[in-house]
Structures are given as structure tokens and as C-alpha cells.
Amino acid sequence: MDALHWWRQGDAVTQGAALVLLAMSVASWVVIVWKLRLMRRATADVARCTAAFWQAPSMDAAAQRLQAFDRSALVLPLVVAANSIAIHSVRGAPASLASAGSLSQRLTRVLRDALHDVLGRLQFGQVLLATVGSTAPFVGLLGTVWGIYHALTAMAGAGQITIDRVSGPVGEALVMTAAGLAVAIPAVLAYNVFGRLIGRIEADLEGFARDLRELLIDTAQPADAKT
């Protein structure tokens, strides 16, 4: 009943701020739950897939093995992209600028693009969490200020103002500030935790991409020497 009374007492601005905070909270918690599952799976997949790759006898066997292990599709795109360049690495005039340059340059280009795509999936939702964490307190503060103004204006038109008549509406308006903080704090904490986890996964993927590039270059050198 108190919440219903507060909702009916507020005007369009107060109700709009409350709806915005509700939408922010729902969106941030959906992202938090989804990214918790993604981060847990990604952390395990990167370690398991890199170990499986180095135990494989060949690039083709490694790619087939990673299809079963890499549920989050973080390591497999790097292997597929690098393997496609290594297979089509032949002498002669390049068909396009994408195929021009040395093997090292082409591997660097495709691995960089694949790494950007993978990290883009890991970074998904971080902007939303940062936005909610930075703006939700101000939305709540807006609701509070407007609610206090609306309550004081209504009481001023009703006649004499006493502390008993002011404390109730003002206290109800301050709930908006608390709601803004309740929405912002989980988003900020999740953003910081996920940022650290993404940084660790990114470092592991960059190290694997660098090792994969050096492996393919060293493997292709004897063939290049013969030609």
C-alpha cells in the first residue's frame, strides 16, 4: 500500500524517473547474470583449449579437437583464421591487397582481426554496466529533488506547513536517491570485476595468438627455403 500510495502521489517526472531506474536495474542484472556465465565458461575454455591445441599433432587435428572443447568460441576462431592463411600461403602475384605481403604480415592481420572479434564478444555489456553505474544515482537524485519540490508546492497551497506534514513527503522522495544507489552499486561492482576477468582472458588470448603466429612462421620457413 505504501508503494502504491507513493506512486499515485508522484507526478509524471517522479514516475518516469522510477520507471527509468527499474529499466536500468532489469537490464543491468540481465547483463550481470549472462556475463557471469560467459566469464566462468570463457576462463575454463581458454585454459582447456590452449592445452588441447599444443597437444594436437597438426593444425587440422587441433581445429577438430577445439570444436568439442571451445564452447565459448574464443580460441577456435584464432586457429581457423591462422590456418586459412597458412594453407593458402603460396608464391606468386597476390590476388588482392589482403593476400599481399609476407606470411608474417598476413598472419598478424588475420589474427588481429579475429582477436578483435573475440574480445568484442567478451566486452559486450560493459558499456551498459558503465552507463547504469554512472547515471543511475543522478536519475534517483532527479526524482528526489523533483519529489521534494512537488510535495512542498502542494503543501504550500494547502496552508500552514509543519514539520510533521513535511517529513512524510520528503522521506518518500528520498527513497528515489536510495533506489538510484541500489541500481548503480551492483552495476559498478560487476563492471570492475568483469573488467579484471576480461583483461586476464585478453592477455591469455594475445599470448596464444603470438605463439601461434611464430609457430606457423617457423613451420613455413623450410618450405620457403626450398622454393
Score class of each variant (00 low, 15 high):
79 V>W: 02
160 Q>S: 10
157 G>Q: 09
220 A>C: 03
186 P>W: 02
43 T>D: 14
163 I>D: 03
39 M>K: 04
188 V>E: 01
73 A>V: 05
60 D>P: 03
112 R>N: 11
79 V>N: 10
123 Q>S: 11
182 A>M: 14
68 A>W: 06
7 W>P: 04
187 A>Q: 01
192 N>G: 06
101 G>W: 05
128 L>V: 02
30 V>K: 00
53 F>V: 09
184 A>N: 07
26 V>C: 15
163 I>P: 08
119 L>D: 05
188 V>K: 01
65 R>N: 12
13 V>M: 08
145 V>A: 07
76 L>W: 03
164 D>S: 14
49 C>S: 15
140 G>C: 01
143 G>A: 04
127 V>C: 05
195 G>R: 05
75 V>H: 15
172 E>T: 01
42 A>C: 02
124 F>C: 13
9 Q>R: 15
34 W>P: 03
205 L>V: 13
178 A>V: 11
175 V>Y: 10
144 T>A: 07
43 T>H: 13
121 R>E: 06
159 G>K: 14
105 Q>W: 05
226 K>Q: 14
146 W>V: 07
221 Q>W: 03
81 A>P: 11
75 V>R: 11
145 V>D: 04
25 S>I: 05
209 A>C: 08
44 A>H: 13
162 T>C: 01
95 A>T: 12
127 V>R: 12
202 E>Q: 07
194 F>D: 00
140 G>K: 00
167 S>C: 08
96 S>R: 10
63 A>M: 15
2 D>N: 04
24 M>D: 01
196 R>S: 15
191 Y>P: 02
153 T>V: 03
182 A>P: 07
156 A>V: 09
99 S>V: 08
108 T>Q: 14
5 H>L: 05
140 G>E: 00
20 V>I: 12
213 R>W: 08
198 I>N: 08
79 V>I: 10
194 F>W: 04
145 V>N: 09
191 Y>M: 14
122 L>M: 15
17 A>M: 13
224 D>M: 14
213 R>P: 04
104 S>I: 08
47 A>C: 06
192 N>A: 03
221 Q>N: 04
98 A>P: 01
74 L>S: 03
48 R>S: 09
1 M>L: 14
34 W>I: 14
60 D>L: 11
159 G>L: 03
68 A>S: 12
138 F>S: 00
162 T>I: 06
106 R>K: 09
38 L>A: 10
114 A>P: 01
107 L>R: 00
92 G>C: 07
119 L>P: 02
132 V>I: 00
104 S>L: 08
111 L>F: 02
143 G>Y: 00
222 P>N: 08
177 T>E: 09
123 Q>A: 13
34 W>Y: 07
12 A>T: 10
130 A>E: 01
19 L>F: 10
15 Q>G: 08
167 S>L: 11
73 A>N: 14
93 A>K: 11
122 L>S: 02
10 G>C: 12
213 R>H: 11
49 C>M: 12
84 S>A: 15
43 T>Y: 08
160 Q>L: 14
127 V>D: 11
69 F>V: 13
211 D>Y: 04
3 A>S: 08
108 T>D: 10
144 T>H: 00
10 G>I: 02
216 L>D: 04
21 L>I: 09
137 P>H: 03
98 A>L: 10
14 T>Q: 14
192 N>K: 15
